[in-house]
Design a protein around this nucleic acid. Structure first.
Lengths: 269, 269
DNA sequence: CAGTGGTCTAGACCACTGA
DNA sequence: CAGTGGTCTAGACCACTGA
């Protein structure tokens, strides 16, 4: 249930010999809507995922690659930057760029965040929800502060048990400002991801969030909803989400069963 | 004790008027060792931190700024990219680049990770350690797998209670490969950060790590070391660290008191 | 030494936002 | 429409690694 993570083998001290360009079979479509550097990044990612490029392999030099693809070196570098950020490639000045030894599933990546539905699907589990409460109410002080609303403002509360393959996985409380999203109440959120609805029906894309993670012991009621024992430990994740313009759109408190869920991060410095 | 985080005010719907360049007083030193784009990023960061640039302010356009600084636009963009990654700036195509509404202390940033010592100092707390064990031993199967060592390989185990302002905060078990770091045993790690010693004495810089975070209940012994009650929840952070070349250098399991510690992340997508 | 990634330049055209 | 950020080019010089 926990994400499957395997650390790859240690790097061979003398690096693998460079991969030939001809083994990579990449090309760019200058007429496509996706930027060239994204196309290249995607193809490199694919080659790493499907095993054409393996742990420790040295990819062709930036000049060689950009020549072969007939793009400028800066564009090629933008593509490589993406994979370096994701932890898939490692640049080594003077030596080359190698495929990183870290194999991780996607949600492990620091970059990006997902809704519960997206995360479960990416792990091959079927998400569903049991709605406990879905209504508007007056925000309490803490929620009002999180969403930067005046005291007494209305919010919509969505409280759900989140299931993965029909097993309770998390207990989630989402708050969104009523004024901006009052129409939300007419959608069926037992079947649809909240983020989906916000994006498709309200043209609001969750873009940035801040999360706090702590460990707590479940009280009797929470334990019952999650079908575990009272006092069992759980991860409490508090998330505040903003749209592309930086406006606060959602505050969320989620309790994850500790026997079913852990978070994985990749970090760099 | 928990990191202090405050969400800023919501953005004014019509953006603040653009900040004049003359109010920013920035300049670059082309002879310095730090790259120009890092210098610019640092100065912009400074202006945000000291309040010259405030939430919602629109910074001057990229062309205007790069002209004023006599750098190319691509260089200026590299600087802005850094702050966007850190969540301090938000780009809005067609509108401008605004100062983000998120105010967060540094350790909240997704990018980068810190040793316990670094983290506590950045929160204004004085880190110290009580060493419970510091010796070489045969790696158990789990640790050998984490460090990608053969079964039966030796590791150095460093087990410490980590204190902040003399209060127990975390219980840490670090494993490093004996073969590469046997000299480590002669250093005094009750006063020095492990990462410091690795960097200064072994020329090994922790560069990338993978972390797993879960919630557990403390057993009797762990609770005693942390001076809390048996069964209390704690965050268990498992970290595997690599150096700049991608070699595994450390595996670490840390239990954090849940009443004293929470993790904060900033994420984007 | 040749080759690598790191940084930088001085342009260009694009799609988008808002007046 | 003028102005913005997003992308791209075709070069250049640098410091570094390893033979």
């Amino acid at each position: 249930m926990a994400p499957i993570v395997s650390a790859g083998p240690a790097p061979r001290a003398p690096l693998n010999s460079p991969i030939g360009i001809d083994q990579l079979s990449m090309r760019v479509n200058r007429r496509a809507d996706t930027p060239i550097f994204k196309q290249i990044a995607e193809q490199l990612r694919e080659q790493i995922q499907n095993g054409t490029l393996r742990f420790g392999d040295v990819i062709p030099g930036e000049r060689e690659l950009s020549d072969a693809l007939a793009v400028s070196r800066m564009t090629l570098r933008a593509a490589i930057d993406e994979l370096v950020d994701e932890g898939l490639l490692l640049r080594q000045r003077g030596r080359g760029t190698v495929v990183s030894h870290v194999r991780i599933n996607k949600q492990a990546q620091v970059i990006g965040f997902m809704s519960f539905s997206e995360e479960m699907r990416s792990r091959g589990l079927e998400p569903s929800s049991r709605i406990l409460s879905f209504k508007s109410e007056v925000a309490d002080a803490a929620v009002a502060a999180q969403l930067d609303l005046p005291l007494g403002a209305q919010v919509i509360l969505l409280k759900r048990v989140r299931l993965a393959n029909l097993e309770p996985m998390a207990l989630e409380r989402c708050y969104v400002p009523y004024e901006r999203f009052s129409g939300l109440l007419k959608f069926d959120l037992s079947r649809r991801s909240l983020y989906d609805v916000l994006e498709q029906e309200f043209d609001t894309r969750p873009t940035m969030c801040q999360e706090t993670v702590e460990a707590i012991a479940l009280d009797a009621r929470e334990a019952r909803d999650l079908q575990v024992k009272r006092g069992d430990p759980a991860l409490l994740v508090t998330r505040v989400t903003r749209d592309a313009r930086g406006s606060l759109i959602e505050a969320e408190q989620t309790l994850y069963r500790s026997d079913r869920y852990r978070m994985v991060f990749l970090r760099q410095r």
